[in-house]
Lab assay of single mutants.
Amino acid sequence: VFVDDHLLEKVLELNAKGEKRLIKTWSRRSTIVPEMVGHTIAVYNGKQHVPVYITENMVGHKLGEFAP
């Protein structure tokens, strides 16, 4: 499973602090992992960042699938 390192670091850091804030990313190719559930990730679609709230059903899919 591929997840960009910088994105995973941000998610794990927020989980350690117990925070839930918006994470901006250009990494549409990253796979959604269970650690991301409950976070809102702003995924770049080529024009703007689209906020995507991550749920359990999204695990295993790519971030780009949810930012048309």
Score class of each variant (00 low, 15 high):
residue 16 A to I: 09
residue 20 K to Q: 07
residue 45 N to E: 09
residue 21 R to V: 12
residue 25 T to C: 03
residue 68 P to A: 10
residue 30 S to P: 01
residue 61 H to V: 09
residue 15 N to T: 04
residue 26 W to D: 13
residue 61 H to P: 00
residue 40 T to L: 13
residue 49 H to P: 05
residue 42 A to P: 01
residue 19 E to P: 03
residue 26 W to A: 11
residue 68 P to E: 09
residue 13 E to K: 08
residue 59 V to P: 06
residue 29 R to D: 11
residue 55 T to N: 14
residue 30 S to Y: 02
residue 35 E to P: 14
residue 24 K to C: 15
residue 8 L to H: 03
residue 29 R to L: 14
residue 65 E to N: 08
residue 36 M to H: 02
residue 12 L to R: 13
residue 6 H to F: 15
residue 22 L to S: 07
residue 45 N to Y: 08
residue 39 H to W: 05
residue 38 G to F: 09
residue 53 Y to V: 10
residue 55 T to S: 12
residue 38 G to E: 08
residue 62 K to C: 14
residue 67 A to M: 05
residue 60 G to V: 02
residue 25 T to D: 02
residue 58 M to W: 03
residue 60 G to T: 11
residue 52 V to Y: 03
residue 8 L to F: 13
residue 28 R to E: 04
residue 10 K to I: 15
residue 1 V to I: 14
residue 9 E to F: 11
residue 8 L to N: 02
residue 4 D to H: 03
residue 16 A to E: 12
residue 22 L to Y: 06
residue 5 D to W: 15
residue 33 V to G: 03
residue 17 K to H: 07
residue 6 H to S: 13
residue 62 K to D: 03
residue 34 P to F: 12
residue 11 V to C: 06
residue 61 H to M: 12
residue 19 E to V: 13
residue 41 I to A: 01
residue 66 F to Q: 05
residue 25 T to V: 02
residue 40 T to P: 01
residue 31 T to Y: 14
residue 13 E to T: 06
residue 53 Y to E: 12
residue 28 R to T: 08
residue 12 L to T: 08
residue 65 E to P: 04
residue 44 Y to V: 05
residue 26 W to Q: 11
residue 53 Y to Q: 14
residue 16 A to Y: 07
residue 17 K to Q: 08
residue 67 A to G: 07
residue 58 M to I: 11
residue 52 V to H: 03
residue 55 T to L: 13
residue 34 P to W: 11
residue 13 E to I: 06
residue 45 N to H: 09
residue 64 G to Y: 12
residue 7 L to F: 01
residue 37 V to K: 11
residue 44 Y to C: 14
residue 58 M to F: 06
residue 68 P to C: 13
residue 33 V to R: 04
residue 3 V to N: 03
residue 47 K to D: 09
residue 58 M to L: 13
residue 59 V to K: 07
residue 61 H to L: 14
residue 26 W to R: 10
residue 32 I to R: 00
residue 23 I to R: 01
residue 2 F to E: 11
residue 4 D to Q: 02
residue 23 I to S: 02
residue 24 K to R: 13
residue 57 N to V: 12
residue 49 H to F: 13
residue 13 E to D: 11
residue 31 T to V: 12
residue 33 V to H: 04
residue 15 N to M: 03
residue 1 V to G: 15
residue 31 T to E: 07
residue 42 A to D: 06
residue 51 P to V: 10
residue 14 L to Q: 12
residue 35 E to M: 10
residue 32 I to Y: 00
residue 17 K to N: 10
residue 43 V to Y: 02
residue 35 E to K: 04
residue 22 L to N: 05
residue 38 G to R: 06
residue 27 S to N: 03
residue 7 L to P: 01
residue 68 P to Q: 07
residue 61 H to E: 10
residue 45 N to V: 06
residue 16 A to R: 13
residue 12 L to Y: 06
residue 64 G to K: 08
